[in-house]
Design a protein around this nucleic acid. Structure first.
Lengths: 149, 149
DNA sequence: TTTTCTGCAAATCCTTTGCATATCC
DNA sequence: GGATATGCAAAGGATTTGCAGAAAA
């Protein structure tokens, strides 16, 4: 007897929106459906262009606002372009990073376990892999205590 | 008898620049030194502001150009703000990503090994970790064959 | 009915570019 | 001396914001 965990995507959308006090609008639905169809991890602009064919009345800033809201409630994942500006690291020793979601701090740490990770065959078969990076994300010490998260 | 691997940072800078046909200028040196001093993975703008105190003649776009060049020759690492736009992912199943450096494609893959990674105590002690992400970086099938990399 | 959302337009922020001059090798 | 780098200013691209009208709960 398994618990039913998977709702259909739109039911998920409704559920999460209501849970977070967001309204379920036609725009939210069309944006979410278009993103579901996409296999290429699109940008707001790309999604907007695809939707324009069928929904010319939709505006780009609604796509931005909607995707941000979705990411906040955990309905979708931001997989590129987290912070607001480029950041650089001069350390040459093997290490990894923790990123604070609130203040943007990036903390270094080392981990033998992470250093020893292998590249899955499904990827190394076709792609040339030059780098593996493990990134932790959450709230740092200060932000954790300031907010009551 | 150990081979000497670690040159002092400025020697590294000179070495890598020459190796890649880049000139060693006072600007490159001051930018690299300031980045070495920083423990916070600064943005170009932040680095520029810090340098202005002592080098008011330095320009922001030189900081941008220089940091990009450093990242290209592998002297420093870009640790935030890789792509040009935000990208979103609707998949709710556990998975990881490969990012192509040339065309920007993001490929999904699964890995039990990656799913089972632990959070190091040095981080979980102070920080609240909400997410762990493994990202592979390199050249995808198409880009690998097009370029001769 | 009330609060939130949307579309529009303008603003903002980050990054890149063109060009003339200065500089490294 | 010749190729590359720099500084300046302007352009470009991505994202955010203020506001008034529209729509969801």
């Amino acid at each position: 007897m398994t618990v039913k965990r998977e709702l259909d995507p739109i039911a998920q959308l409704r559920h999460l929106c209501r849970q977070h006090g967001l309204r379920v609008t036609p725009q939210k639905i069309m944006i979410y459906q278009e993103l579901q169809k996409a296999l290429d991890h699109p940008s707001p602009e790309q999604l907007f262009q695809r939707l324009q064919r069928t929904h010319p009345e939709l505006s780009l800033d609604t796509v931005y606002r909607t995707l941000s809201a979705f990411a906040e409630i955990g309905l979708v994942d931001l997989v590129e372009g987290y912070g607001t500006a480029r950041r650089f690291d001069p350390r040459r020793e093997k290490h990894h990073h923790f990123h604070c979601r609130k203040c943007g701090a990036i903390l270094d740490f080392t981990s033998d376990q992470y250093d020893q990770l292998a590249i899955p065959a499904s990827i190394s078969r076709d792609c040339q892999v030059l780098n593996l990076r493990v990134t932790l994300e959450g709230y740092c010490k200060q932000c954790r205590s300031q907010t009551n998260i």
